[in-house]
């Protein structure tokens, strides 16, 4: 879709790309598919090697969004890129704990910690 809204706000801190989610809710499938496309492009098209996903504004995310993050993590590993997640609100972090995805993602509490020592 040519008119797809940006779902990520991109910023570079040194050689680290910080991708901040724009939407509070990453729930509906159309939104999730677009988020997925824009996330995957960071690796597939832009070849970024160190990526931090900043969840500070995200209040909800569904299991389909978790699926996109898992695919993103696999892509990152396959491309020898590094992916970190940060600033996840407690309710959403609980979802990561319930699903045990906190075991496979590199999650930091703050942006500073996520960017440091990549």
């Amino acid at each position: 879709m040519a008119d797809a809204k940006p779902r990520l706000d991109l910023d570079d801190i040194g050689d680290v790309t910080v991708a901040t989610f724009i939407d509070k809710k990453i729930l509906d499938e159309a939104n999730i598919n677009e988020v997925g496309k824009q996330l995957f492009a960071l690796i597939d098209e832009d070849g970024r090697r160190k990526i931090v996903l900043d969840f500070s504004v995200v209040e909800y995310l569904s299991s389909a969004a978790l699926g996109k993050l898992i695919t993103m993590d696999k892509k990152a590993k396959g491309a020898k890129s590094k992916l970190r997640l940060c600033c996840i609100k407690p309710d959403i972090y609980e979802v990561f704990e319930i699903t045990r995805l906190n075991k496979i993602f590199d999650i930091k509490p703050t942006l500073e910690e996520a960017v440091k020592g990549f």
Binding site: S62, S63, A64, L66, G67, K68, I70, T71, D73, K74, V95, I98, T99, R100, L101, K103, I104
Partner: peptide, 21 residues
């Protein structure tokens, strides 16, 4: 079971678990 070690990296199958939880 999406929380089993061998299923952790599967992109789907977590909705049921979250509803139960």
């Amino acid at each position: 079971d999406p929380t089993a070690d061998e299923n952790l990296d599967r992109p789907s199958g977590r909705g049921l678990l979250l509803m139960r939880e």
